[in-house]
Amino acid sequence: MLSASALRYCHDRHRDPVIDSVSLRVKAGEIVGLTGDSGAGKSTLGRLLAGLLRPQAGRIELDGTPLPRHGLQPVQLLMQTPELAVNPRWRIERILHEAWTPDTTLLEALSIRRDWYSRFPHELSGGELQRVTVARALAPGVRYLIADEISSMLDALTQAELWHALLQVVASRRMGMLVISHDAALLSRVANRCYRLNAGQLDALA
């Protein structure tokens, strides 16, 4: 179980915290939705949970132990713009293999094609590149995913394709996932339960 308790984070010491005493739990095999207005701190909370930011107070634990400081992180973050999440000078093959070597079944499930391997990131569409970053993040040892608005830049068809593939992999590996989105219809499709982040506070939604 991924649990966060009494998290607090401010970007700037002189301003109000973006996240204030937020506690949250995601169980293995569970998909939790997170919504809120822009600037409410959704992305900050996602980065805290993934360990990309360190909270100023509070703890983040995975099955009762703190997140590891070194090595492959068991909580991985998927970002809104895949173009920023990959090195623009690397070819797709190198990007895909940075964390591990994905097996053929996974590549097929995400419809990643071999002929992309020699291309550069700007030669793939947003949806294609997003699937590459998803495959890269699914290394063995990764048990939770934070999906931060991963489909808000995609058209409806590409969005549906991405989510169907991702949900299938997550379910087969019994991974836990936090889905951040301001699209209520999408969250009702993919999440088991939802939270709303408002002025640094977390409320459960029915």
Binding site: L52, H70, L77
Partner: peptide, 22 residues
Amino acid sequence: NADYVRLSYHFGKSHGFVLFHH
């Protein structure tokens, strides 16, 4: 400060790897 460099550390890559490859 680029996201892809931060993610590289997150995949367990060393400072040396990041310096020489990114």
